[in-house]
Simulated scan of single mutants.
Amino acid sequence: MIKDITSKAEEKMKKTMSVLKNDLATMKAGRANPTMLDRIEVEYYGSMTAINQVANISAPEPRLLLIQPWEKSTLKDIEKAILKSDLGINPSNDGAVIRLMVPELTEETRKNLVKNVKKTGEDAKVAIRSIRREANDKIKNLKKDGNVSEDEVKKGEEDIQKVTDNYIKQVDIMINDKETEIMSI
């Protein structure tokens, strides 16, 4: 029973890490990266669809994103979606493709980006700790119900703590890597 609780907690922590990884990938770091557009959706045949589902997105140069829609009729909608987004990049539409020039990051922009990265990392740590607390509560409830001994509870809590420490360390590493990437551009 305790192993089930531990493995479920670890699975949730893995999902948290996956979300963190995606969040960090969508943050622009001065280089053109197709994942920057992952959160932007465009209206396509009446429903909101991710840009990468209606167009080919490539980065032919370090500071340029090229968006080639599969249907030319979606060009204007993609352009509007990019303008509405929080990217802060003006698209250049030549009738066939959309070009996005990723601007140089100023020192101030870098510092703000690093703040956002740290906040995102802190949010992930809070989520991981919340998962730990939830798992520990479930283990304690097993003891209250008389299903496990005190020693099993202690062992279960130690296992959960080890898993938590491991994921917190991974978050720190990811945040430091992203911070280094942003400041070294």
Results as ranks from 00 to 15, higher is better:
127 A>V: 02
140 K>Y: 09
53 Q>L: 04
82 I>H: 01
176 N>W: 00
10 E>W: 00
133 R>F: 11
70 W>F: 15
105 L>V: 02
22 N>T: 11
155 K>M: 10
55 A>L: 05
150 E>V: 10
33 N>G: 01
84 K>F: 12
11 E>L: 05
23 D>T: 05
126 V>C: 03
151 D>W: 04
168 I>D: 08
17 M>C: 00
122 E>T: 14
130 S>R: 03
12 K>S: 11
161 Q>Y: 06
171 V>K: 04
92 S>Y: 12
142 L>S: 10
59 A>W: 00
129 R>I: 06
59 A>L: 05
107 E>F: 03
123 D>G: 09
168 I>S: 07
84 K>Y: 14
171 V>D: 04
185 I>M: 09
62 P>Q: 00
94 D>L: 14
12 K>R: 12
115 K>S: 06
143 K>C: 01
26 T>M: 13
68 Q>T: 15
118 K>T: 01
99 R>V: 08
65 L>A: 07
83 L>V: 15
122 E>N: 13
49 T>P: 01
24 L>C: 09
108 E>I: 06
16 T>K: 07
38 D>R: 05
136 N>Q: 06
81 A>P: 10
127 A>Q: 14
86 D>E: 15
62 P>M: 05
49 T>F: 02
98 I>L: 15
118 K>P: 03
145 D>L: 14
126 V>A: 10
29 A>C: 05
181 E>Y: 02
122 E>K: 12
10 E>N: 03
56 N>W: 09
134 E>P: 04
108 E>H: 04
11 E>N: 09
50 A>N: 14
67 I>F: 11
67 I>N: 13
63 R>Q: 07
118 K>S: 01
8 K>V: 05
83 L>P: 08
130 S>H: 09
133 R>V: 07
45 Y>E: 02
104 E>M: 01
37 L>S: 03
119 K>W: 03
156 G>N: 01
110 R>D: 02
26 T>R: 15
73 S>I: 12
68 Q>N: 13
162 K>M: 11
180 T>M: 10
84 K>V: 11
133 R>P: 04
77 D>A: 15
146 G>V: 06
182 I>L: 03
152 E>R: 00
52 N>S: 13
28 K>P: 09
177 D>I: 00
179 E>Q: 05
74 T>R: 04
179 E>Y: 05
13 M>H: 03
70 W>I: 08
